[in-house]
């Protein structure tokens, strides 16, 4: 059933087809403007409009929008400063953009019929790889080979190092995986659960009067899970931003 299929909401379809390359030669690339692209653009537009509205008045005593924008600003700024220090504040626009993008994309996904950008692993993986490459590039640019001290914890006796260093390297390399899969999995699982429960409402409602009564239970569950998913949407954006700040801290201060 299309109405209750939990996977259908993740399907990507073209809005403005842009196809590059030759299909016959096997190098075809589909760069179409899809529903996913549309919601990426909508996310950017919503966040930009929000920040623009909050910054438009620039009054000494803030109004509601300005206060909300300033709260978002200082929230991210405090988070970054507490984990990466003042030197990490040069990444503030980056962390704020990541946090805002993930948060707005997650929250937009909570609207019925809206596409959730972050429910696709390629998007979260791209964001996580962006974070890790910024960490690696800035770390080597700022500290040179000393950045490799990150993998050698201070105060560890020499004979354990052959065990500790590979573990540190593996844990560093697994960061982008866990960072992307955490966000992707949470959003995907939440949306599937939501769709499954709301599907129960539809299929039970088709059974007649008794079914309507029985449909009340999954309906209540759907409402509760919607609230939980709103929390998850915000918390996952927060976790993504906090972990980004902590990884950036490694780039700024590699010897921990």
């Amino acid at each position: 059933m299309a109405g209750t299929d939990p996977i259908h909401q993740f399907v990507i379809y073209d809005l403005f087809p842009i196809h590059i390359g030759d299909e016959a030669a096997g190098n075809a690339l589909n760069l179409s403007f899809t529903n996913s692209s549309l919601f990426m653009v909508v996310t950017v537009a919503v966040l930009t409009a929000f920040m623009a509205m909050s910054a438009s008045k620039a009054s000494m005593v803030p109004g509601r929008f300005q206060l909300a924008g300033e709260l978002a600003y200082s929230f991210v700024a405090n988070m970054l400063r507490s984990s990466a220090g003042t030197e990490g504040m040069k990444f503030f626009p980056f962390v704020f953009s990541l946090f805002g993008f993930v948060l707005v994309a997650n929250l937009l996904g909570m609207f019925p019929y809206f596409f959730t950008v972050t429910s696709h692993i390629i998007v979260t993986a791209a964001l996580a790889l962006l974070v890790i490459s910024v960490v690696i590039l800035y770390g080597f640019f700022r500290h040179g080979p000393k950045f490799l001290k990150l993998f050698v914890p201070a105060g560890v006796p020499g004979y354990v190092l052959p065990i500790v260093v590979p573990i540190e390297i593996i844990s560093f390399l697994s960061r982008p995986i866990s960072l992307s899969v955490r966000l992707f999995g949470n959003i995907l699982a939440g949306h599937i659960t939501l769709k499954v429960f709301s599907g129960f409402v539809v299929s039970l409602g088709a059974l007649g009067a008794l079914g309507w009564l029985g449909a009340l239970l999954p309906l209540i569950m759907t409402v509760a899970i919607t609230a939980l998913e709103l929390l998850v949407a915000v918390v996952q954006a927060y976790v993504f931003a906090v972990l980004t700040s902590m990884y950036l801290n490694d780039a700024v201060h590699p010897s921990h």
Partner: peptide, 20 residues
């Protein structure tokens, strides 16, 4: 609390992902 919950919950999500 919320941070720890999110980190822990993610591990459960990983097993869900393996199932998927």
């Amino acid at each position: 609390l919320i941070f720890g919950m999110a980190m822990t919950e993610a591990l459960g999500i990983f097993s869900f992902l393996v199932a998927l």
